[in-house]
Write a protein that binds this DNA or RNA. Structure first.
Length: 420
DNA sequence: TCTGGGGTCCTAGGACCC
DNA sequence: TCTGGGGTCCTAGGACCC
């Protein structure tokens, strides 16, 4: 049996840990730039606040219902996520960390999965303070479904075990196709049209139909619904194939210099990510975009791929190439909303083929970056040393008007229990 | 008139996930 | 004034190879 453990309203739960006043009260967490709602407490859901709803549409409503609003603080959430995963790993040696707030656990060999699920829930709550729900079933897809059922039906015990055909069929029948893991809006519309409405319907679909209309992934999915394990547990995360840093600006930008500054900073962040995972980029993609939502503005979306002379992870090189790419796609006269860089075709640092004719001294470059990373580690990962082109104007900076402190990762932000 | 067979690599686009 | 960011996988089609 496989368990899917999922933190309830994870970002909201993280904020509540440090703001006891936010319990028993609607709470939402906003995306970057305080743009839209990405996490809601149960009370906020009851108020009818939708996932992804733009915050500025709802300001009056948020105020009148006394909703606690937070900017997202990924440093805090990442740190608490690590603690949750640590606790989970003590329950099952074989585990896949699926996302910041979810993990699959292999429970095979346990005689009483229900008791274990209850213990997991209690353990995480006790040790970290985050409430979780647990779904247990023979396959990952069914475990996901059981988990969703626990939350949707607000089962008071917080877990559900699908260990009989009857229990499984009941949950399958109660789940619409669009709520199945792996079925998005496009497939859902097609399935309804073809007469498949519930997960139970889909579990009875012919294999060749699933293969033809939903690709091989859909075929695996249908088998999983029937209780045949077809998606394996991935214990060690495969190395990333791409690294992307892209942000909307806090305000629209028209000046190339401002966009250069933003892009230089994103390229620096991408380079740091690459070094942290020990890989280098062979190709970079750089893009610029205007704001689609502004019908009154002329629109411009453009991206370009650049093959690097030698795979690179040095901040200096990535900034250099990114800005060259920008030169080729930037056009004056637009209100720009977003830029970004994607580092692709990543190769392990150790397997890089040097270019005999390249002008860059990679030994020197590497030492420089080691020094840079060493210094930044001293300052809790903050980029205290920067390249001049990264500037300091920050016209592009994010809006984060309701950011809570980094209670668990920055010494200065640790809560004071007592002041002198 | 007839016009092979088998393969790789790359790119673009579509679909999905949290 | 204000609408997120970061990923993965699959397929189809074209270019190219012997």
């Amino acid at each position: 049996m496989i368990a899917l453990v999922d933190c309830n309203n994870f970002y909201v739960s993280c904020e509540r840990l440090f703001h006891p006043g936010a319990f028993h009260r609607p709470v939402v967490v906003l995306s970057n730039n305080d743009g839209c709602v990405i996490s809601r407490s149960d009370e906020a859901k009851t108020l009818g606040i939708r996932m992804g709803a733009p915050a500025f549409f709802m300001e009056d409503m948020l105020r009148s219902h006394d909703v606690a609003v937070f900017s997202s603080n990924y440093t805090l959430y990442g740190s608490l996520s690590q603690r949750v995963m640590q606790v989970l790993s003590s329950f099952a040696p074989e585990m896949e960390v699926y996302s910041i707030d979810e993990a699959f656990l292999d429970l095979s060999g346990h005689a009483a999965p229900g008791r274990l699920a209850a213990a997991i829930r209690g353990g995480v709550l006790q040790d970290v303070g985050i409430p979780v729900s647990v779904g247990v079933a023979p396959t990952k897809t069914l475990a996901k479904m059981a988990n969703r059922y626990v939350k949707k039906s607000k089962l008071p015990e917080g877990f559900l075990v699908l260990d009989s055909p009857a229990a499984t069929a009941a949950v399958l029948a109660a789940t619409q196709v669009e709520d199945i893991w792996g079925i998005g809006s496009q497939y859902a519309a097609m399935l309804h049209e073809r007469g498949f409405h519930s997960a139970l319907d889909l579990s009875r679909a012919p294999d060749d139909f699933a293969r033809r209309e939903l690709t091989v992934q859909g075929l695996r999915l249908v088998h999983e619904l029937r209780g045949i394990p077809s998606i394996g547990l991935e214990e060690t995360a495969p190395p990333k194939k791409a690294v992307c840093v892209a942000r909307s600006f806090g305000q629209l930008l028209t000046e190339k210099d401002d966009i250069r500054e933003a892009l230089a900073n994103y390229a620096a962040a991408a380079a740091q990510k690459l070094r942290a995972q020990g890989s280098r980029a062979t190709v970079i993609q750089v893009f610029v975009q205007t704001n689609n939502f502004r019908g009154q503005d002329a629109q411009y979306h453009r991206s370009i791929n650049l093959r690097l002379p030698v795979p690179a992870s040095s901040t200096r090189e990535l900034i250099h190439h990114a800005l060259q790419a920008l030169d080729r796609i930037f056009k004056p006269g637009y209100n720009y909303k977003k830029t970004g860089i994607i580092a692709m075709d990543l190769v392990p640092d150790s397997q890089v083929q040097e270019n005999l004719f390249a002008s860059t001294d990679h030994d020197k470059e590497k030492k420089l970056m080691q020094a840079l990373d060493g210094i930044s580690r001293h300052f809790a990962g903050k980029p205290v040393l920067r390249f001049a082109v990264q500037g300091g104007n920050k016209k592009w900076a994010l809006r984060q008007e309701r950011l809570s402190p980094c209670y668990t990762t920055r010494l200065h932000d640790v809560i004071k229990a007592k002041t002198d």
